[in-house]
């Protein structure tokens, strides 16, 4: 147990959670069959808005993170209106371009401090540990140091956010909106012929994805002390895309599993880090060739369900 509560593992678990939240964000955009390569851009809008609010304007973190998400979401609506007229590849390229433009703007603005980034961001962990010690909590609490307790609490908050998002997505799937998403994904022109306002629903999915990416950005800013433009470059977009490609984008659990695997794997394979990106690249190609629906699809779930169900009886 002591080993499991090692700060190192806790920190990795925290990153797994943030990446899983990013996985949910790409899942939402993909649920209408849109490929957005701008998630890193939205993430950076969320992260910077949030960091500037807390560091420079003194906003409390719990307010700043949702505001960051909303800022990313608003931005996505502005560029989404014209961009969503574009389909498929065009949208992917337009959002990729958007991400690049955001990066260059962040590099040039004074308030974002250019390439130097924003450092000294108060982390959730330190905030919580300060709170804990102000409550008069002793240095050791149930065998845990204050640092461990606060990281555990941060983890708990992230898990709650993720559970909420998953719950939201599962509910969404069974709502009118979710069915419209699925219809658009299956065949956009058929959906339109049926009277579904495809632009509205596509924009909605796009904005929701951006909102969650923005929140993930805000969270990550408050977990790493420092953000810079390099954190949100093209490679980050590819990583987020990989979560969905590996895990599968049929179900919300797909990208989450993808994020889990792809965050843990590099830590386990530290010695092979030279070849990590090569493995990622090969993984993308193989997945597309052999299992384009990802590891977890509705069929997999059905298969395992029937198998496990039979086994337990």
């Amino acid at each position: 147990m002591d080993m499991l509560l090692n700060q190192y593992y806790l920190q990795i678990a925290v990153f797994v959670m943030v990446n899983a939240i990013l996985g949910v964000s790409i899942y939402l955009t993909l649920s209408t069959g849109q490929l957005s390569l701008g998630n890193a851009g939205f993430m950076s809008i969320g992260a910077y808005t949030c960091a500037i609010l807390t560091v420079k304007a003194g906003f409390p973190v719990y307010l700043a993170i949702p505001i960051g998400g909303i800022a990313a979401s608003l931005m996505s609506i502005i560029i989404g209106f014209p961009a969503l007229r574009l389909t498929g590849i065009y949208l992917a390229i337009a959002t990729l371009g958007f991400g690049e433009v955001v990066r260059v703007i962040v590099l040039n603005l004074k308030i974002t401090n250019g390439a130097l980034g924003i450092s000294g961001i108060p982390t959730l962990g330190t905030k919580i540990s300060k709170m804990l010690s102000s409550f008069g909590l002793p240095q050791k609490f149930g065998g845990l140091s204050v640092q461990q307790t606060s990281t555990l609490l941060v983890l708990l908050i992230l898990v709650l956010i993720l559970v909420f998002l998953v719950f939201f997505c599962v509910r969404l799937n069974r709502s009118r909106v979710g069915r419209a998403f699925a219809a658009i994904k299956a065949d956009e022109s058929a959906a339109e012929a049926m009277g579904i306002n495809t632009t509205y629903y596509k924009l909605l999915a796009f904005a929701l994805g951006a909102l969650i990416a923005g929140i993930a950005g805000g969270l990550s800013a408050h977990l790493t002390f420092f953000i810079g433009p390099k954190d949100f470059a093209y490679h980050r977009t590819v990583e987020i895309l990989l979560y969905a490609v590996l895990g599968g984008s049929d179900l919300v659990f797909g990208p989450i599993v993808g994020a889990l695997i792809l965050t843990l794997l590099p830590e386990l394979l530290r010695s092979a880090s030279n070849y990590r990106l090569m493995i990622y690249g090969a993984l993308l190609v193989t997945m597309m060739a052999f299992r384009p629906q990802g590891l977890i699809s509705e069929e997999t779930v059905r298969f395992w369900k029937s198998k496990l169900g039979r086994g337990s009886k």
Binding site: V245, Y275, M278
Partner: peptide, 20 residues
């Protein structure tokens, strides 16, 4: 497969070659 599949697949090739 989806029309996005070749795009993703070639992104994979790109990352592989760059890292190589």
């Amino acid at each position: 497969v989806s029309h996005l599949a070749p795009l993703i697949s070639t992104i994979g090739v790109a990352i592989f070659l760059e890292s190589l």
